[in-house]
Design a protein around this nucleic acid. Structure first.
Lengths: 200, 200
DNA sequence: ACCTGAACACCGTTCAAGT
DNA sequence: ACCTGAACACCGTTCAAGT
């Protein structure tokens, strides 16, 4: 009597979530290039036109994927941040978490950083980035108040630290260096950022 | 009597170069997503199968594009490098040239950094990267000899400076900050790298 | 050596129609 | 509200055949 009891009910139930989950798997295993809406529909056991009801086009699905990536990254960073720690180990922990994310999700990171999202999606992305950058900015401002960091423009400081971390993350995601080398280099990276390359 | 005098000769003459030039224009004006071999063939006034004689597949064309990008970047950096300058202004000049390249060729930079090139192409890419990183490494090693930079592992130092520059470049290419803000922030970036964030 | 034309197996997107 | 099936206009790639 239950219409949903057939092995392939007319209504999927939660197609949107199924498509996103499938896309994330494909992204992880085969990369963006291998992502096809028709293929995802096939995997979900649904017609090729069905995804159109949940994502206005392919880019919309990619943007949704990127946004959920920002969410996961933000959670990972917040979980890795220990405000009780002194500045240097605190930043090192954050950097390590960021690099770990980059090493685990290289294709997702590339997608998160791609400059091809719809205006509306781009807005959500911008706030997601601000959330992360803001977190870093607050740590730096706080350290400034404690006299642990020079009294320069906090935006410039945040930009520099952010750039160094992001550059290291993309190098890591690029796969030129192996995981161990990258993660064991984090301490030196943060040390150099704090103390500079010039002799004291 | 000249077979090439017809408006559309059977042989193009230099189709390979024409395809690359067209691809570079499309990349600059519309982005990678808009790149189509068939479209490029149309623009070159040639059949859709003709590109196949010069590039084994689409990825091969993209790799060739990325390689020429590395060449142009290396030339730009070498032109911008003045070995007569003291360390800080010397690095600032290099950083500015890199950021300018990133701001002018955001899509190309993304392509240059993509992790999806054939093994053979990837090899050429790796040497191209080494050429650039090596340049930076030599500057750092030289500065170490002059006592202008601490005596840490030069690879770690190069990685850190490279990461900061690359991160700044991708932030710039991403378009979150406008050109002026980015370029005027270079001096502070290099200053912070050399002197560190901690008070002296 | 270089290019064409037809063919194949895919795409993304739209839209009337079905449940 | 959600999904299907057919249709449309594109792709990249291959391959016999032409020049």
């Amino acid at each position: 009597m239950n219409h949903m009891s057939a092995s392939r009910p007319y209504h999927h139930g939660d197609l949107r979530a199924a498509l996103l989950a499938g896309a994330e798997r494909t992204l992880l295993e085969k990369g963006v290039a291998a992502l096809s809406l028709r293929e995802l529909a096939r995997e979900a056991g649904v017609s090729h036109a069905a995804p159109g009801r949940h994502f206005k086009d392919k880019q919309a699905l990619l943007s949704a994927l990127a946004l959920s990536g920002y969410d996961r990254l933000a959670r990972a960073l917040e979980a890795a941040d220990d405000p009780a720690l002194p500045l240097q180990p605190r930043l090192t922990g954050l950097a390590r978490a960021y690099l770990r994310f980059a090493l685990d999700n290289p294709e997702l990171l590339e997608l998160m950083y791609a400059r091809k999202h719809d205006p509306e999606a781009a807005d959500l992305m911008a706030t997601a980035v601000d959330r992360t950058v803001g977190h870093l900015g607050r740590i730096i401002a706080e350290a400034q108040r404690h006299g642990e960091i020079i009294e320069a423009d906090p935006h410039h400081l945040t930009f520099t630290v952010g750039a160094a971390l992001h550059g290291a993350a993309t190098f890591s995601a690029g796969g030129v260096l192996d995981r161990e080398t990258v993660l064991s280099g984090v301490d030196d990276l943060v040390h150099l950022l704090l103390h500079g390359l010039k002799p004291r």
